[in-house]
Amino acid sequence: MEVYNAMRHFADSWGLLAMALFFIGAIFFTLRPGSKKIADEAANIPLKDE
């Protein structure tokens, strides 16, 4: 039971902080300047003829 409480405390505090930072980083990575060109190129990969 002691391990469960320790893991629950960790998930409630540091785990939540880590998930929030990851979410903010993912949003920033997606909306950063210059990402539109890269996303458009990736979206057109299936449509390219070899």
Results as ranks from 00 to 15, higher is better:
residue 49 D to G: 02
residue 46 P to G: 01
residue 9 H to Y: 09
residue 47 L to N: 15
residue 26 A to M: 15
residue 33 P to H: 03
residue 13 S to Y: 01
residue 17 L to G: 01
residue 50 E to I: 12
residue 35 S to V: 11
residue 40 D to K: 09
residue 42 A to L: 09
residue 34 G to L: 01
residue 16 L to T: 13
residue 21 L to R: 04
residue 26 A to Y: 03
residue 27 I to W: 01
residue 25 G to P: 01
residue 36 K to D: 10
residue 22 F to T: 15
residue 20 A to E: 08
residue 23 F to E: 02
residue 9 H to I: 06
residue 15 G to M: 05
residue 49 D to R: 13
residue 24 I to T: 13
residue 24 I to C: 12
residue 39 A to H: 09
residue 48 K to V: 06
residue 1 M to E: 11
residue 30 T to W: 02
residue 35 S to D: 01
residue 20 A to F: 08
residue 38 I to W: 05
residue 48 K to Q: 15
residue 1 M to T: 09
residue 3 V to M: 11
residue 10 F to A: 12
residue 25 G to M: 05
residue 21 L to Y: 02
residue 2 E to D: 12
residue 44 N to C: 03
residue 24 I to Y: 04
residue 25 G to S: 12
residue 38 I to Y: 04
residue 48 K to W: 06
residue 45 I to R: 09
residue 39 A to V: 10
residue 44 N to H: 03
residue 40 D to N: 13
residue 37 K to L: 04
residue 15 G to V: 02
residue 26 A to H: 03
residue 30 T to E: 01
residue 33 P to G: 04
residue 49 D to F: 05
residue 16 L to F: 01
residue 34 G to D: 03
residue 22 F to I: 15
residue 47 L to V: 01
residue 19 M to W: 07
residue 45 I to A: 02
residue 39 A to N: 11
residue 50 E to T: 12
residue 36 K to W: 03
residue 42 A to F: 05
residue 1 M to S: 15
residue 30 T to C: 07
residue 48 K to T: 08
residue 8 R to C: 07
residue 50 E to R: 11
residue 3 V to P: 00
residue 17 L to C: 02
residue 33 P to A: 02
residue 39 A to K: 14
residue 3 V to T: 13
residue 48 K to L: 05
residue 1 M to Y: 04
residue 16 L to S: 09
residue 4 Y to S: 07
residue 31 L to W: 03
residue 1 M to K: 11
residue 10 F to N: 09
residue 7 M to Y: 06
residue 11 A to H: 04
residue 8 R to H: 05
residue 31 L to G: 05
residue 28 F to K: 08
residue 35 S to L: 07
residue 19 M to L: 12
residue 41 E to G: 05
residue 40 D to H: 04
residue 32 R to W: 14
residue 28 F to M: 11
residue 42 A to R: 08
residue 11 A to S: 14
residue 22 F to A: 15
residue 39 A to W: 06
residue 36 K to Q: 10
residue 8 R to N: 07
residue 45 I to P: 00
residue 42 A to D: 07
residue 29 F to G: 02
residue 10 F to Q: 07
residue 49 D to K: 11
residue 36 K to A: 10
residue 47 L to I: 01
residue 8 R to A: 10
residue 6 A to M: 13
residue 31 L to Q: 12
residue 17 L to Y: 01
residue 25 G to L: 06
residue 32 R to V: 02
residue 47 L to Y: 14
residue 47 L to H: 15
residue 28 F to C: 13
residue 2 E to K: 06
residue 6 A to Q: 15
residue 42 A to P: 00
residue 38 I to S: 09
residue 23 F to Q: 09
residue 28 F to S: 11
residue 23 F to T: 14
residue 22 F to E: 03
residue 49 D to W: 06
residue 50 E to H: 09
residue 44 N to F: 03
residue 35 S to I: 03
residue 4 Y to I: 11
residue 34 G to Q: 02
residue 43 A to G: 02
residue 4 Y to D: 12
residue 30 T to R: 08
residue 3 V to L: 13
residue 13 S to A: 08
residue 13 S to D: 08
residue 22 F to V: 13
residue 18 A to T: 07
residue 49 D to N: 11
residue 8 R to T: 08
residue 19 M to E: 06
residue 31 L to E: 05
residue 25 G to E: 02
residue 47 L to F: 11
residue 4 Y to A: 10
residue 6 A to G: 08
residue 16 L to E: 11
